[in-house]
Design a protein around this nucleic acid. Structure first.
Length: 293
DNA sequence: AATTCCTACAACCGCCGACGA
DNA sequence: TTCGTCGGCGGTTGTAGGAAT
């Protein structure tokens, strides 16, 4: 037995919305607020599916929507957030006031993808396009978070070339190499895996030592009580972060997006000099100044 | 001027998780 | 515990309008 349709499709309009339909929807929501989308069309006198009403309102009619082209700052923020979250458009949209997930998704597919390709980066992995073919089936940073042990303390996360480090109170972070073996179903025996990981770690170290490409991205939760507009967020403050535990890796990832987040991204060729907003400790860049998002 | 191609984006579809009965 | 409903999400499609031929 299949699922019942969300609405009676035989008597619903489809396609582009008319001005009259828009006005009916606006008037109804102004009068009654956003409520039960299923019953809204009938109550508002619309021959539309409730889902369609919701989409129209959220993506087009909402008064707080920002219209117009994306700014360069928004571009870069989307790129950074995508490198962290993958295609989690709703989470990304949550960090861009006035922008919708649909809008960002479309903008990504039409503009940013090309922009990244122009920079020589793979839009999905954010890694160099000329990287080895075996990295094509790479794991997204969010997947790496999901692959991490449950109830992970998320005081600070550092993503490095697709790898991920969890830094809590230890100055030396353990590097977790990315797993490039493709689908999670592929398994090798343990010694092979260990050898592979060791090799990857050595390769990574070599790249670091040789000052080659720097694709580091650091992210940390802003300590509670720290003003996000603060010019300086000393690392000592970060150390005092109470450890936070999350019920699931997904919850941890969501917390990264929901709360104030400090981001620092280094693209291009490696230089030992950190940007003004972060500092390097033990080879790992950490943000100093939270980004005002 | 007509036709074809390309781009941008609004809208739809199907799936999933949360929630209540 | 199971089942049905609902809201939300991401992927995909349809189409209007502009550019190229």
């Amino acid at each position: 037995m299949g699922r019942s349709p969300c609405c009676e499709k035989a008597h619903t309009n489809k396609g582009a919305w008319t001005k009259e339909e828009d006005q009916r929807l606006i008037n109804y929501i102004r009068a009654h607020g956003e409520g039960c989308w299923r019953s809204l069309p009938k109550a508002a006198g619309l021959l539309r599916c409730g889902k369609s009403c919701r989409l129209r309102w959220i993506n087009y009619l909402r008064p707080d929507l920002k219209r117009g082209n994306f700014t360069d700052e928004e571009d870069e923020l989307i790129i950074k957030l995508h490198s962290l979250l993958g295609n989690k458009w709703s989470l990304i949209a949550g960090r861009l006031p006035g922008r919708t997930d649909n809008e960002i998704k479309n903008y990504w597919n039409t503009h940013i993808k090309r922009k990244l390709i122009g920079r020589g980066l793979d839009p999905q992995t954010h890694r160099p396009l000329n990287a080895d073919a075996e990295t094509a089936t790479s794991t997204s940073p969010l997947e790496l978070i999901n692959a991490s042990p449950p109830s992970l303390p998320l005081a600070e996360i550092t993503l490095i070339n697709g790898g991920i480090n969890y830094n809590n109170d230890k100055p030396t972070a353990e590097f977790k190499p990315r797993t490039d073996s493709g689908s999670s179903g592929v398994t090798t025996d343990e010694t092979q895996q260990q050898q592979q990981q060791q090799q990857q770690q050595e390769t990574y170290q070599q790249h670091r030592d040789n000052d080659e490409l720097n694709l580091e991205l650091s992210i940390g939760l802003v300590p509670s009580g720290t003003p996000t507009s603060s010019a300086n967020c000393a690392e000592s403050e970060l150390r005092q972060l109470p450890l936070q535990f999350f019920a699931s890796p997904a919850a941890a990832a969501a917390a990264v997006v929901a709360g104030p987040v400090g981001l620092c991204c280094h693209l291009g060729f490696q230089s030992r000099q950190a940007c003004g907003s972060c500092q390097s400790t033990n080879g790992f860049y950490r943000y100093q100044r939270p980004l005002d998002l």
